[in-house]
Amino acid sequence: MYALGEDVPTYNTMRPQYSLQGNNAEEIFSGKPLDINHYKNYLYSKKTLRTI
């Protein structure tokens, strides 16, 4: 149960969601506009870091 207590806040506030076009749940609920290009760039930068 402890891991779930850590994962839910991370999922809602930090982890970008593809279905939300790169925003996380908190950003959607606060009214932030969707920006798929930002998400694609973010994923590309993280992928680059993993392959170094």
Rank of each mutant, 00 (worst) to 15 (best):
T13V: 00
Y44M: 11
F29K: 12
L49Q: 09
M14V: 12
G31K: 04
E26N: 04
F29M: 14
Y42E: 12
N23A: 11
E6K: 04
E6R: 01
N24W: 02
I36L: 13
A3Y: 09
P33W: 01
Q21S: 14
T51K: 14
K46T: 08
G5S: 04
Y2V: 12
L20E: 12
E6W: 03
I36V: 07
A3W: 08
Y39M: 01
Y44R: 15
L49N: 00
Y18E: 11
P16V: 02
Y39H: 14
T48R: 13
V8W: 02
Y39S: 04
G31F: 01
D7M: 13
D7T: 04
A25Y: 11
L4P: 00
L20Q: 06
D7P: 00
N37S: 10
G22V: 02
G22A: 07
E26P: 00
M1C: 09
Y44S: 14
A3P: 04
T10P: 00
K47G: 12
E26Q: 10
E6A: 09
M14D: 04
L49T: 02
P9Y: 02
N23L: 15
R15L: 15
N23I: 01
E26T: 03
N37R: 11
F29Q: 13
L34P: 02
K47Q: 15
N24A: 04
V8Q: 03
M1Q: 09
M14Y: 04
P9L: 04
N24C: 14
T13S: 07
Y11H: 14
M14N: 00
L34S: 13
L20Y: 07
S45H: 12
M1Y: 08
R50Q: 15
N12T: 01
V8N: 01
K47P: 00
D7S: 05
Y11A: 14
Q17F: 04
L34M: 13
T13R: 05
M1I: 10
Y39P: 02
H38F: 11
T10H: 09
F29L: 14
T13N: 06
N37L: 07
E26A: 13
P16W: 06
Y44N: 15
E27I: 03
V8P: 00
S30G: 00
T51S: 15
L49D: 06
R15H: 12
N23D: 05
G31L: 02
I36H: 05
P9V: 01
L34T: 10
K47D: 10
S45L: 13
Y11E: 12
M14K: 09
H38S: 12
T13Y: 05
